[in-house]
Design a binder for these strands. Structure first.
Length: 271
DNA sequence: CTAGAGGCCTGCCCGC
DNA sequence: TGCGGGCAGGCCTCTA
């Protein structure tokens, strides 16, 4: 579930439990997730958590000397539990706090990551990321400059983290539908009004999703609480062969860049 | 530079 | 009911 809205929801959910607490221990039960979990992570033991930030889909748990950098991959999730709660299948990492709570990381597919960066050091995984979609640095002028003379199709372009971060497979299709742009349009051919519209729809689709994700905060620290996050109003994603909610045409599905892509041929004509 | 394919893992759903 | 195949919200790496 971890697209940007859920990562942000996780951040908001864990922050009040973690901020100001001291890390008592870090228990790692797997050798590697996406990458080996670095020994340096243990340097955080004894440190006080100052803040929890999000950059792209990474969460950063900051202490005065360094940060844990967490990515949820395809199937990762974080919960705050009492330390006494027993470990379940795929609970790979525990960050144990002074207050008797534990931040517990579960990830069946192990595509996520736990990394470490000393204070002041920019980890490689963060080095080449584009702007945050919900900030002013992601705007039409920036987007126009990036797209100039490029032939990359727009669906893949907006999913490129070097262009803009946090637009995953679901929201790429959804944003393009809202902007009425065909996913296979080469970005160099986008008109100025289309670029304005697309930038604006990416922001609004993500912002709306974050708002909806907020409802999962309530059960965030329940023991077996699952995020009730799926109740999205998706217009095209996962709706192949069904009627478009606007015009009743059948929703199309095709792999673009090895990822399933959904669109309405009528609402999003290929000009 | 880009595009495309492969790979990492497990769970789940579908069809037989 | 059991089993094999295909697919899944991410993203890095290798090849052409």
């Amino acid at each position: 579930m971890p697209e940007l809205p859920e990562v942000e929801t996780s951040r908001l959910g864990i922050t009040p439990h973690l901020q100001g607490q001291t890390i008592k221990a870090i228990i790692v039960r797997v050798e590697k997730l996406r990458w080996p979990i670095p020994q340096e992570l243990q340097l955080l033991v004894g440190q006080r958590i100052q803040s929890i930030r999000r950059r792209a889909k990474y969460l950063l748990i900051d202490t005065p000397t360094g940060s844990a950098i967490i990515h949820l991959g395809m199937s990762g999730s974080l919960r705050v539990l009492d330390e006494s709660i027993s470990v379940a299948k795929h609970d790979h990492v525990d960050l144990i706090l002074d207050n008797g709570k534990v931040l517990r990381y579960n990830d069946p597919r192990k595509f996520g990551s736990w990394l470490y960066a000393a204070v002041g050091v920019d980890h490689d995984v963060l080095a080449k990321l584009g702007p945050e979609p919900l900030t002013d640095t992601f705007n039409a002028e920036y987007f126009s400059e990036k797209t100039k003379n490029k032939k990359t199709v727009v669906k893949q372009f907006v999913m490129n983290n070097a262009v803009v971060v946090g637009v995953g497979n679901i929201y790429a299709s959804e944003s393009l539908f809202m902007a009425k742009i065909h996913p296979k349009t080469p970005v160099g051919e986008l008109t100025q009004p289309q670029i304005l519209r697309l930038v604006s729809e990416i922001k609004s689709v993500l912002a709306t999703a974050i708002k909806q994700g907020g409802t999962t905060l309530k059960d965030f620290n329940q023991v077996d609480g699952k995020p009730g996050y799926f109740a999205q109003e998706l217009h095209v994603y996962g709706r192949a062969g069904k009627a478009c909610l606007i015009c009743q045409s059948l929703i199309q599905e095709e792999k673009i860049g090895q990822r399933n892509t959904f669109w309405c041929e009528t609402c999003q004509p290929y000009k």
